[in-house]
Design a protein around this nucleic acid. Sequence first.
DNA 1: GAGTATGATTCCCC
DNA 2: GGGGAATCATACTC
Length: 341
Amino acid sequence: MDDQTRMMSGLAGLGGLSQADVGDPDGVRKSLGQPQQDIGDILQQIMAITDESLDEAQARKHALNCHRMKPALFSVLCEIKEKTVLSIRGVQEEDPPDPQIMRLDNMLLAEGVSGPEKGGGSAAAAAAAAAAGGSPNDGSIEHSDYRAKLAQIRQIYHSELEKYEQACSEFTNHVMNLLREQSRTRPISPKEIERMVAIIHRKFSSIQMQLKQSTCEAVMILRSRFLDARRKRRNFNKQATEVLNEYFYSHLSNPYPSEEAKEELAKKCAITVSQVSNWFGNKRIRYKKNIGKFQEEANLYAVKTAVDAASVSAQASQANSPATPNSGGYPAPCYTPDGRL
DNA sequence: GAGTATGATTCCCC
DNA sequence: GGGGAATCATACTC
């Protein structure tokens, strides 16, 4: 006799118990010893229960639960269930860790979205800023925007994750309670409950994976936008270029502004210190490569500087004494053919 | 659309 | 880390 047949015969034996048998252990023994009853009869008896009053049904249930053979029969049924159903599905239960989830987790960790907070993802922002050639301490608009948006993504991610975890926990408890309740009337082994919990966790973990995927996509989009925005070239305005050129040509003998000078120029031009450094780097190289081409520009700025200096001097003379010598501003530079002062 | 200008990036050296 | 040189990518001009 195979397991399923044994189970059916077990159920048939239990189903065939009359109210008189339940109250009479000898009768039960006789009923259990009887040949298999027809399935139709059992179903008929089950259907007949629906015609009974609630009190009668409760009484029958109570009588069954109190029957001295019930624990033994219950354990046999559990065993059969475990052998027939759980052994088949059990193989699929112990899945190895999903590499996709691992990749997503690693990425979220690296970007500062998951894991311990590191200043709102400042590490990733700094890395992105560094990758873009800017100093993390520039305090540029793009950097602070990136950090703010990353912090927003992080907040949403954690809030959603918390919701999922709470829902998962609540649902698991609910199902476990239901199963425990049902286990009084039908064979439910602890292993089966564990299996059910695992199924629920798998379902919720697939939802979590979707959340992680969406978060990763959001971070990628943010990052690419951030880097693109920094990479996108915009010409400096005319005034900024004039300020930089004035400094460059008036310091042509040593066109290397100090950090303080760079900061000052950056402030004047409303650009970052890195941009000032880039500008001077480019200017030095391009000037050196083609001095002839820049000579006209150099002379232009020399004249401009001289005029400005004269203007400042005149104002100072008027304010002080007509005899005061010209001491303000840059001297009008006299350029050698190689462009040096 | 081609050529040029120019800001940004990358690699290398010191 | 700062600077030189090469290069990229985009804006601008014709």
